[in-house]
Design a protein around this nucleic acid. Structure first.
Lengths: 279, 279
DNA sequence: CGGGCAATTGAAATACATCAAGGCGTGTGG
DNA sequence: CCACACGCCTTGATGTATTTCAATTGCCCG
């Protein structure tokens, strides 16, 4: 009895089905991949991009035409483009170099993991997303970033960003604002994980993603591409893989959403937001 | 059946025992309070204080003697001191003025709440803690801060901080570093809430607090003042009040900790950190 | 064709939450 | 001085949301 008490205190869940960590380092995937035939060749929505909002990205310049839309007098920075296949790791938790990656195309997940396999996804990275504003000035450790779909991203040099940040104070203001938004989102995540039910968490995750996609013009009416596996949803909401499947099933039964293959349709937006407890 | 499905999706837990919100606006508590006889009159550990690390606080100057310990050439700022009784609110979620509060003495909790009463504590504020680094440059909405014990804090003017930040770049570096630490802690919180068991969460909360207290010299060997109610622990770990009581009971049974009144003793630190899954 | 990945489903286990009652200490007002 | 309310903790019984386990299926890819 006594002994079993002790061992009870140590009990860790054992995570079994984690095939996701098995990257397949084949030759083909080391080369820049061909673009998926269905997707437009460049879907990078540079206009909704923080990198553009900060006016970092030299690539965005080509899009806005003359300087009518420029929001800072800071110069734009050089960057290197990479394209990697799904499931490949973009950043390892300990390998944060002098570069800051920004996603240009595709979906990625930024997560933090326990040695025993449990992991928590902190945010999904869509085109235009940076891993974390705090990483602009300081290298960020502990987080790992993994591609969900094929991902194209640009690496900026931190030293250059930093120099610009210190030189152009309006840039700093903008970083501070985005930093604050990030914090607010982290707060909400904690509230979700700590105090909301599975139904609420999943409904909120979907609602949030739909908004994000809409802002980037990545929706097609009420339908959109939705490359998340149930495992991603599970790891983002702190739930088990199986339970996520069941809740999603209920949502479809109840006529809130529809999921077919890799596409999601919002059927009853009001009800979905109701479940999510949206304001 | 169909109808019950629908209503199931909307089910919100109802939170009942929340006596904590009942501030008692008596006359006495509006005046600066007498200092508790047991506590030393000024326990403000300005040396471990971010405000000191940033060299913001003019009060810290008196402590360090001559300028031997100054880490920035930025001038120190004026601030106003307030003392409020336990359970009083320091900041309301929508009332973020142009001031940035920093705790000088006592414990406070920074939290975010749902309309139905559920709430999540995001961090405990000990002497030297600022609510959020991001709030230095931008007003922070949504969070509320509540005193746990009697709390003394200083209000700094954001405009002044901002000016200094922009003027003295070494300050900015330091803010960035602390900002990054904050982000790391937020990540850990999400991991805890999403992927750890009640035992782990509570063990981690305690271990973390002990470390923080030790860093500030607020421990007395393995014993320390511990003013948290079980409700605070519950709201910080996303658990129910009752369950927290049971887990704490187990911890004491197993000889990990001891709690008497308002004081905590770490009996078996190794085992406690083991349960916490400390590295 | 095999094999890894993914979704689904049912049955069982459990880690929690909820409900309810009682005790203890403390401040308050009669 | 005593009631009394209130905040706080405890404990047991009961309920349930969620996890774990296990088996099956389909799918895509090499």
């Amino acid at each position: 009895m006594e002994a079993s008490h002790r061992s009870n205190l140590r009990k860790h869940p054992v995570v079994k089905d984690r095939p996701i960590a098995s990257l397949q380092p084949k030759l083909a995937s080391l080369l820049p991949l061909k673009v998926d035939a269905e997707a437009p060749s460049v879907r990078c929505s540079c206009l909704a991009c923080p990198a553009h909002e900060l006016n970092l990205c030299a690539a965005a310049k080509t899009k806005g035409g003359p300087d009518s839309d420029r929001r800072s007098d800071a110069p734009q920075l050089a960057s290197t483009v990479y394209t990697i296949p799904a499931r490949r790791s973009i950043c390892h938790p300990k390998e944060w170099s002098e570069f800051v990656p920004i996603v240009c195309d595709g979906w990625a997940a930024s997560s933090i993991a326990l040695p025993d396999g449990r992991r928590q996804i902190l945010s999904f990275l869509l085109p235009g997303d940076i891993v974390s504003m705090a990483s602009l000035l300081e290298p960020t450790h502990g987080r790992s970033v993994q591609a969900i779909t094929q991902v194209t991203y640009r690496n900026f040099r931190r030293s250059e960003i930093k120099f610009n940040l210190l030189t152009f104070s309006d840039l700093l203001e903008r970083v501070a604002r985005i930093c604050n938004e990030e914090r607010a989102q982290a707060d909400q995540l904690a509230l979700d994980l700590g105090r909301r039910t599975a139904y609420e968490r999943i409904a909120r995750l979907i609602s949030g993603l739909v908004d994000k996609l809409a802002k980037r013009g990545m929706t097609n009416g009420r339908t959109m591409e939705f490359p998340l596996r149930q495992r991603h949803i599970a790891d983002a909401t702190g739930l088990s893989l199986v339970h996520v499947g069941k809740v999603l099933g209920k949502f479809q039964e109840a006529g809130l959403i529809e999921i077919n293959g890799r596409s999601l349709t919002i059927v009853n937006e009001m009800e979905l937001r109701g479940v999510a407890g949206w304001p």
